[in-house]
């Protein structure tokens, strides 16, 4: 993302003017601290995800503690672990069931690029199936890295164009 120059940012996201910008900001602020996430855990990285979720590292501090196992209520899809060719349609179905706006984190080398499994059975990165917002490298990533990724995603959510119903149509 990098630092956003305020003036350019307002011009880009303005669409409506000062109030629209402020609403945009407010919505971003609200959305980033109330992420309901769907943990799509398949493999090894799930263990580190468990560590990050539990009391020791506790990512509830960042407002992502709410785990929901229904994609329809989730804002963020946490793809943790290897996605094999057999699993790929399942992941796609889950993603398609999520409501807008939604975000995806690919956690671990396997989800990012297939990792060390460059063979017939593994999808070489989940971005071949669904769009991804944040990639977390590491095999498996340490809990700190997961926390860092969550912060990065929150940063992104804060600064992106927010959709809201009453937005002025062009």
């Amino acid at each position: 993302m990098g630092k956003i120059k305020p003036r350019a940012y307002y011009r880009e996201t303005l669409n409506g003017g000062f109030i629209a910008t402020k609403i945009n900001y407010m919505l971003g602020w609200g959305r980033k601290y109330s992420l309901f996430h769907y943990p799509f855990i398949t493999a090894c990285c799930g263990m580190e995800y468990m560590s990050a979720a539990c009391a020791h590292w506790d990512f509830d501090r960042f407002g992502v503690g709410m785990t929901t196992f229904s994609p329809r209520q989730a804002d963020m899809l946490f793809v943790v672990g290897t996605i094999s060719q057999k699993e790929a349609p399942v992941l796609k179905t889950v993603y398609e069931q999520m409501c807008e706006p939604n975000w995806v984190i690919a956690c671990g080398a396997c989800a990012v690029s297939g990792g060390i499994y460059d063979n017939y059975a593994v999808v070489q990165g989940i971005d071949k199936i669904i769009p991804v917002d944040v990639f977390i490298p590491g095999c498996p990533p340490r809990p700190e890295t997961i926390l860092n990724a969550i912060e990065k995603l929150q940063d992104k959510i804060q600064h992106q164009k927010q959709d809201w119903k009453w937005k002025i149509k062009k």
């Binding site: 290897t82 094999s84 017939y120």
Partner: peptide, 27 residues
């Protein structure tokens, strides 16, 4: 659903190199 081709991959690795794959069996 988590078939990652461990056995096939090992046939293409040297005895020393395939050690990291064994980490990821029972993780």
């Amino acid at each position: 659903y988590l078939h990652r081709g461990f056995e096939k991959t090992c046939e293409h690795k040297t005895y020393f190199n395939l050690l990291p794959y064994t980490d990821r069996l029972n993780y």
